[in-house]
Design a binder for these strands. Sequence first.
DNA 1: GGCGGCATGTAAATGGTTACATGATTAC
DNA 2: GTAATCATGTAACCATTTACATGCCGCC
Lengths: 178, 178
Amino acid sequence: MSAKRARRERPLSELEGCVLGHLLRRGPCTPYAVRRSFQLSPSSHWSGSAGAVYPALERLEERGLVRSVHAPRGGRKAWRYALTARGRARFNTWLEPPFAPDVLSVPPDPLRTRVHFFSTMTPARRARFVAAAVTGIGRHLEVLARSRGHDEDDRRALAAARHALRARMRWLAGLRAP
Amino acid sequence: MSAKRARRERPLSELEGCVLGHLLRRGPCTPYAVRRSFQLSPSSHWSGSAGAVYPALERLEERGLVRSVHAPRGGRKAWRYALTARGRARFNTWLEPPFAPDVLSVPPDPLRTRVHFFSTMTPARRARFVAAAVTGIGRHLEVLARSRGHDEDDRRALAAARHALRARMRWLAGLRAP
DNA sequence: GGCGGCATGTAAATGGTTACATGATTAC
DNA sequence: GTAATCATGTAACCATTTACATGCCGCC
């Protein structure tokens, strides 16, 4: 028992956590369904590429967090992955506090990264930079405003994304006239 | 000439862009100096690991954006990397609009990702989640408040990071009492 | 009965990470 | 003279990405 305790569990990647969560909410899914959910979600930053999702599910199965069930539909082979009890427990520790440090620290932001080099720009270039960023973010906000979200969780994530973008816009506006 | 034009330049990664920018501001640097600047910066999310910085500089040299100068100090071998003219031009196109799409879109946020699974939590768990996140972010904010930044760019990036964290805090507070 | 798109993958490249190895310099 | 730290890497791994391959299904 102590030996079993001893081996450290590797932390889940963000994608792996999301996959487990998806299985928890939706029940057993085909890999394709998981992919599609990432592809369609406007608030996720994953492409839902096959090369990410299939290996992730295989890793999760190796660790016993997920098990695959053969569920042919029509004459067609089809695997569904279902959450195991261990998988559900693992998801919960991923989801809940205490959080890993990088969950709470400042998220990376390519725009902030670039502003870090403002000292290399002339005022005119800075002005162009800010103007282009503001209109670009505005376009993104419009897209998010049109997005509906197909459940409560989705709407919450959308609201969070909008909130973050609006905050970024305000920050840029403050940058415009220093 | 048209043949030369024809081959597409691969985009710079964020790290590569930052390395070029560092060389532009600070002049020729040793790889170690570049690493240290990433390690010490509180507003960068890179570890400044040798395994990232050394290969990045080698890639940049292969592409002719940087050239290495042998500059021994004492009896010790030491390479300094200097920006080339092409490197400076490349940095400017990386830095300026028009931006790549992911520069302006919603940055990934592990906390938002987790909130996407609020529907799987009881109200008590949600409350614990929000409370832990708020105090954790508060701690991060205190650290940032103590950070000074050693130049104008640094201070600007720090201000941006603080702004983003405060916005996240407000969003969480709104989440607390729905 | 062919075609478009849904579904299921595989392969290769990429750009990061941690961990390790090791020589030179400096502080004490 | 020895321990700490500066400096310079290398190796292995890891989770993504894009691009490719391919079979089945429903529609016209």
